[in-house]
């Protein structure tokens, strides 16, 4: 069964860290202060990060 995962658009991300604060699985880190990155193995696709992102840089994708 395909699972939903958060996908972050690096070009829009402002590295504010809102997503980081809401992720219940600590699946996100900010790469060198430049953009946010998710760890697919930890992400459960809850979508909280996408909801909090002020830049709307996160999408949930099926893969």
């Amino acid at each position: 069964m395909p699972k939903r995962k958060a996908f972050i658009n690096k070009n829009i991300c402002v590295a504010c860290g809102c997503c980081l604060k809401v992720c219940p699985k600590n699946a996100i880190e900010i790469f060198k202060g430049i953009y946010a990155q998710t760890h697919d193995d930890k992400c459960v696709g809850c979508g909280l990060c996408a909801k909090s992102c002020p830049a709307d840089a996160i999408e949930l994708t099926k893969n």
Partner: peptide, 9 residues
């Protein structure tokens, strides 16, 4: 009007 931390953008 937008997301709470819109200013951060």
């Amino acid at each position: 009007f937008f997301k709470p931390r819109a200013w951060c953008v």
